[in-house]
Simulated scan of single mutants.
Amino acid sequence: MTTTGTTTANPTRIALRTLADRYLALWNEPDAGLRRKALEELWSDDGLHVLQPPQDMREQAEGLGFTEVKLEARGHDALEYRVTRAYEEFVAPGEYVFRARGEAEQLRDVVKLSWEMAPAAGGEALGGGTEFLVLGEDGRIVTDYQFISL
């Protein structure tokens, strides 16, 4: 926002950008100890990450007779495993990084942020997704709904 030629920062916008930056940094963090610390600071003790599986996985499950497929990780240990697995598969080999796409938005206790997975050397994104983060009273994530888009 601009007033009389002076630019003042919007505290809500800064807080949202900080949350989005911290969230994405977690998925790119190479140090396991720092990754765990960041996770505990971001998520509540009983935090839940719910991933909508990609369409091909849902179709395979339907072929096996499953009408609903959801992937969940609850609590710091399960969340750590989930984040570490994604890090090891996509980031650790040096091929990709996760980065923000656009600005985060907030409506009451829900934050929406979009991200993309891009080559570590730079270039066009190969995939991405959108997170809907439900925040607790302490500002930590209670539930993270992740929608992958390829």
Rank of each mutant, 00 (worst) to 15 (best):
W27F: 14
F90G: 02
A73D: 12
A121F: 05
V69L: 15
E103I: 06
L39P: 11
A61L: 12
V69Y: 13
R99L: 11
E105G: 03
Q55D: 13
Y81I: 14
D138S: 14
A73P: 09
W27V: 06
S44E: 10
R82G: 03
T18R: 07
Q52A: 15
W27K: 10
L126S: 10
E116R: 09
E89D: 00
V69G: 01
T6G: 02
T67S: 11
L39S: 07
R85Y: 06
M1F: 12
E88H: 08
L150N: 13
E95H: 06
V134N: 03
F66P: 00
E88R: 10
Y145D: 04
Y145F: 14
T12N: 07
S44L: 06
E68C: 12
G136F: 05
G75C: 10
E131W: 06
N28E: 04
Q55L: 14
G139F: 02
A20R: 07
L26S: 04
G136P: 05
I141G: 01
T67I: 10
E68S: 15
A121V: 06
A86G: 03
M117R: 13
V69E: 00
V97N: 00
R35T: 02
K70F: 14
D109S: 15
W115P: 04
E59F: 12
R36F: 02
G75D: 05
L26H: 11
T2G: 03
G128L: 11
M117T: 08
Y96T: 03
Y81C: 01
D56R: 15
G94A: 02
G33V: 05
R74S: 08
D109I: 13
G102C: 07
D109M: 08
P119I: 05
G63T: 08
R36T: 09
A61N: 00
M1W: 12
A121I: 07
T8Y: 12
A25R: 15
P11M: 07
D109L: 12
H76R: 09
T84N: 06
Y23C: 04
A121M: 00
P119H: 06
K70P: 02
T4C: 00
R99P: 00
D138T: 09
V134S: 08
V111K: 03
G63Q: 01
L19I: 10
L24N: 01
E29N: 05
F98A: 05
E116M: 09
A73H: 13
I14T: 06
I141Q: 05
G65I: 03
A78D: 09
Y23W: 14
D109R: 15
R99H: 02
L150Y: 13
